[in-house]
Design a protein around this nucleic acid. Structure first.
Lengths: 235, 235
DNA sequence: ACAAAACAACCACCTAGGTACCACTTGATG
DNA sequence: CATCAAGTGGTACCTAGGTGGTTGTTTTGT
């Protein structure tokens, strides 16, 4: 990609803000961008990691879920929802071990791609990035530990309330990140099934903690949601 | 610690074999060791991460479980069992964010400690280690993804069988790593409770997949265990 | 604007697995 | 060797939540 690409500046500024590329110089980012190509994923576009990934991706806009699934039962469990500034597939960047994870676009997704080998070369050229990557992975690790233990340590209602709380926008009381997600995606996020999510959303509506209008969930009573999340109170 | 410490050579060779310190030169490892002090943790010795950790630890021998818990119900979920060559707490090394995880010795544990700041200085001095750390974290990440999704995607029986399979020693058909672990530790590993583990161990015994004698579990029918783990067959 | 597909709500049933016991064994300790 | 605590086996009960199906409502594509 060359600087005369109409989206060049927008791409550059997204890269600059990416935690993965924290502390990288503008020159190094421009060098990186020059080797990248743009790609658009439409919703439901899907990628498996069973074929070892030879391309490294940066997300410019849109949302991507990373999930595992059980082909026998058809159930899925989402481990991350990635958005602008995030990258994948980091693990294939570090080593060539296979691991069976799936990626699927939840929206229209704008990504920048670069061949894995070139990304490795770039990293070796600008080794300062190692620290940023470590920091990035550490953050992911922490999230992942919660995902891992939430299912056994907390009930689905508590997990739902916690998920909502994690996504409330301070002013509007709206749920930015997970809004417009169908119930079964929410189910995947907290490790349960669609019908159980539906059941609990009704429960929270009934007791006045939230309101729902055309897929947008609004938080009405933050305090109540908090007490549900902390298992202090059963509605 | 100085080279005339009676265990010096043993410590050095454990460090040399640690994946966390992969590719480090002998000189750098000796520099590291010179700043470390030894410590012994007895079984059940316990450490919380709520006070931000100011010490970095290397495990020389013994097993340490890393777990999260729900203080209300008393349930625990183990995310890792660390042993010789492993390190903790990596996350506090990367940044100073709090995260509530607990560590507990399962055996007598030999650890080497070093103040967090000195460890950071050492890393900066020998930056080649960054790659090894990344690799190490990546491996952990992969394990963690399985832990995170196993509970929702597979039944407890399947998870138990999988855990056993992960630990069979090729020759003796014995379960090295998890042997001598009480049932409730096994329960913590697969995200369930003691009585359920007991129930399923009986089940596997009854159908001849394993035998149990004085805490040692032996695998009798590997094939059967495999088919249980793959959900092909319900005993 | 209309048909088709996707999604949400609701219900009724069912089972995996969690809770709470008690009784037996084992191994450690004074 | 007597006692005590820890670990285990086993049971009965119960409920959270998963399954499947039906209906009505949005959203989407043509």
């Amino acid at each position: 990609m060359t600087p005369n690409n109409p989206s060049y500046q927008r791409y550059l500024s997204t890269l600059k803000q990416s935690p993965f590329l924290k502390d990288s110089s503008i020159e190094s980012l421009e060098a990186l961008l020059s080797q990248m190509t743009e790609e658009r994923w439409i919703s439901k576009n899907f990628k498996s990691s069973l074929e070892v990934s030879t391309t490294f991706h940066f997300i410019i806009s849109g949302r991507l879920k990373v999930f595992k699934s059980n082909p026998d039962t058809g159930r899925e469990h989402t481990v991350f929802v990635l958005s602008n500034g995030d990258v994948f597939d980091v693990l294939s960047l570090l080593d060539a071990e296979p691991h069976d994870v799936y990626w699927e676009a939840l929206d229209v997704l704008e990504v920048l791609k670069i061949p894995m080998d070139q990304m490795r070369l770039w990293i070796n050229k600008y080794p300062i990035i190692h620290k940023a990557i470590l920091y990035y992975l550490g953050e992911r690790m922490r999230q992942l530990m919660d995902v891992a233990t939430d299912v056994t340590l907390h009930s689905t209602l508590v997990r739902l309330a916690t998920l909502l709380l994690k996504n409330v926008n301070g002013e509007t009381q709206e749920l930015e990140l997970i809004n417009n997600l169908p119930n079964d995606e929410i189910a995947g996020l907290i490790g349960t099934t669609r019908s159980v999510v539906s059941r609990h959303i009704q429960e929270l509506k009934r007791c006045g903690a939230i309101t729902v209008s055309r897929k947008k969930i609004n938080v009405k009573n933050l305090q109540m949601l908090l007490s549900v999340a902390e298992e202090k109170h059963v509605p």
